[in-house]
Each structure stands twice: as structure tokens, then as C-alpha cells.
Amino acid sequence: MAPTGWRYALLVWAYALLSFGVASMIKIAVYRLLDHREARQERHLSRVEGNLMPHATKFR
């Protein structure tokens, strides 16, 4: 089998580094979305619990 050469080797490395960067940016964006989700869910659950049990004592 003949060697592919430096041109294709560098192309593969460039693709790998570029895809790593894109995947990292997507991962960071998803982590930020998931981090803010807890506050939204807590507000929603407090409204739902308040409507279902208006006279119950809340433990929060």
C-alpha cells in the first residue's frame, strides 16, 4: 500500500481539530442551557404545587 502523504495527513488533523472545536462549543452551549433549566423547573413546580395544594405547607 502506498503512503498517502503529508497533505492528506494534515487534512485529517485539521478536520479532527475543527470537529473537536465545534463539538466543544456545542457541549458548552448545552451545559449552559441545562444549568438554567433548574431555576425554571423550580418556578414551575412551585406554581403547580401552589395550585394543587393551596393550604399545604411548602418545604422550600
Rank of each mutant, 00 (worst) to 15 (best):
M1E: 10
M1Y: 15
M1T: 12
M1I: 08
M1R: 14
A2M: 11
P3V: 09
P3I: 06
T4F: 10
T4C: 09
T4W: 06
T4S: 15
T4I: 13
G5Y: 01
G5T: 01
W6C: 09
W6V: 08
W6L: 10
R7L: 13
Y8P: 02
L10Q: 00
L10I: 04
L10G: 05
L10P: 02
L10D: 02
V12W: 08
W13A: 15
W13L: 15
A14L: 12
A14R: 05
A14M: 05
Y15M: 10
A16Y: 12
A16H: 09
A16W: 10
L17V: 15
L17D: 06
L17F: 07
L18E: 06
L18S: 13
L18N: 07
L18T: 13
S19F: 12
F20I: 03
G21P: 03
G21V: 06
G21K: 08
G21R: 08
G21M: 07
V22Q: 00
V22R: 04
V22F: 02
A23W: 01
S24H: 11
M25R: 10
M25K: 07
M25N: 07
K27G: 05
K27Q: 06
K27Y: 08
I28G: 01
A29P: 03
A29Y: 10
A29K: 10
V30R: 06
V30W: 06
Y31G: 07
Y31E: 12
R32K: 11
L33A: 10
L34N: 15
L34T: 04
L34Y: 14
L34M: 14
D35R: 01
D35C: 00
D35V: 01
D35E: 11
D35T: 00
H36N: 12
H36S: 13
R37L: 13
R37C: 04
E38C: 02
E38R: 06
E38L: 08
A39I: 03
A39K: 14
A39Q: 11
R40M: 07
R40C: 03
Q41A: 12
Q41R: 13
Q41K: 11
Q41T: 10
E42Y: 03
E42K: 11
E42R: 13
E42A: 08
H44K: 11
H44P: 01
H44G: 01
L45I: 00
L45R: 05
S46D: 08
V48H: 00
E49P: 00
E49M: 12
E49A: 09
G50V: 02
G50I: 01
G50W: 00
N51C: 12
N51T: 12
L52W: 01
L52E: 05
L52C: 04
L52F: 03
M53H: 12
M53V: 03
M53L: 14
P54E: 00
P54C: 00
P54R: 02
H55M: 08
H55S: 11
A56Q: 10
A56I: 03
A56L: 09
T57N: 03
T57A: 03
T57Y: 01
K58D: 07
F59L: 09
F59C: 00
F59M: 09
F59S: 10
F59K: 06
R60W: 12
R60H: 14
